[in-house]
Design a protein around this nucleic acid. Structure first.
Lengths: 241, 241
DNA sequence: GCAAAAGTGTTGGGCGTACACCCATGC
DNA sequence: GCATGGGTGTACGCCCAACACTTTTGC
């Protein structure tokens, strides 16, 4: 627990006492990818307030916890995952956004691999994956958060290889294309897509094929993280279209 | 003043009481443009804590105030300006960022016209314009905020006509080019710049010249806000390079 | 042998970039 | 008449978008 600091001059203490304190929450927009479509992890609230309604997964930020750490804690509590791609979306700071008490929320979105998370943990929390094309109504301003996150994801995916965050370590090019088609909500041209992703030289072809989705089978690739970070320093971008 | 809500079920009250409350501040990164360079409005603190040191202009967010409204209030208190281009930068939420009490800050950056602000008000607050290429040390994590804001400004200026937010209503093309050169910190080619800005068809040529910086004089233009918002709906972008 | 997905090249147009000279005017 | 900044056009290369057929293999 974090205490008011001792030993500050009176005038300084007064300065901080003037400030009105409020709740700070973080809500996580957790994306996954499966069966050709983008999924969102939602949570049916089992406790008051707003019991029984769908919401994002969130928590209050503790006094002794960084805001980003709070989001990481929430994500780990519900999926068992650490070290996940996660980024701040924006602040939701309207006075009346939470009917209980003044509370601002920092939206943060995460991309996770559906083959890695802890299914039991998710179930225990009453969380369910929903297709982003078919979402239920959500509490408070959570629908706005989801829409903002989808927009930002579309935008960022044009310049950063976010697609690989949603796939297993080994993946095929058709799978990768399918991820981007789900993000952009439109079909991409196979030849142009391959040309583009290979042009960055960050994919390593393996000697294995995945035959789960075709008779011929597609070669598996993995992402070369080291080469990627080297190229980033050179200021490259990693668009797929 | 904002009170704890009455009439909530006990379990709901408990839920909100569990949350640890903290200070929420907003800090404004206020950019202006003058004499060919980008300026930042900084503030020499006259009160404890951190008296005498340079800092951004900020304030605690009040319980009955939206986060964005707090930034607008701060900006108006110090410059007299309303309805200014302002946008959220990001949240600064590290536990130890403020030595006084746990306080997260929402950085917000603003672009203002140096011919419009209230000079007396700025003076009264001990605020001074500094060239961004020559900034003093700043308190807390404010230097990080400034760097982040400069990065974001560079990035966004490629796709949105932010330059005009820093110029008077009537401006010349060389002035506009000079704004972008200050933002990107490099020289731009005059012919390509003109080609690009005119290609968007959002500048209206006036029948006046500005002779303040050359004998020949440069034609003044104004920005066609209506045409711009119409084009935006069509999904255009407004790059200058 | 056929269905179903994997994989492969070429072309045209638009956009960004590089580059050099004449114009108008005040002094 | 000259110094100073304002204003203009072209040519090249690159990247994006459009487009159709062959390959592999399980059934």
């Amino acid at each position: 627990m974090y205490e008011e600091k001792e030993g500050l001059p009176a005038v300084t203490r007064k300065f901080y006492e003037q400030g009105e304190k409020m709740l700070v929450a973080t809500d996580c927009i957790i994306f996954g990818f499966d069966a050709g479509s983008l999924k969102l992890l939602l949570f049916k609230r089992r406790v008051s307030p707003l019991e029984g309604q769908w919401s994002l997964i969130g928590s209050f930020v503790k006094l002794d916890e960084d805001v980003s750490a709070a989001a990481e804690r929430v994500l780990e509590e519900i999926t068992g995952l650490k070290d996940v791609y996660m980024e701040e979306l924006k602040v939701y700071g309207a006075v009346d956004r939470d009917p209980g008490f003044r509370c601002i929320s920092v939206g943060q979105y995460a991309l996770i691999r559906l083959n890695e998370y802890d299914k039991k943990l998710v179930e225990q929390h009453g969380a369910v994956w929903h297709d982003v094309k078919d979402l239920p109504a959500l509490v408070l301003d959570h629908e706005q958060m989801v829409n903002d996150a989808l927009e930002k994801l579309k935008f960022k995916a044009r310049y950063q290889p976010l697609g690989i965050e949603l796939l297993p370590e080994k993946f095929t090019i058709p799978q990768l294309q399918s991820v981007y088609e789900a993000i952009f909500q439109r079909e991409l041209d196979t030849r142009n897509f391959r040309k583009k992703v290979f042009s960055h030289n960050v994919l390593v072809k393996l000697d294995e094929k995945d035959k789960s989705s075709s008779k011929r089978g597609a070669f598996l690739y993995k992402f070369d993280h080291k080469r990627y970070s080297d190229l980033l320093k050179g200021g490259s971008d990693f668009g797929v279209l």
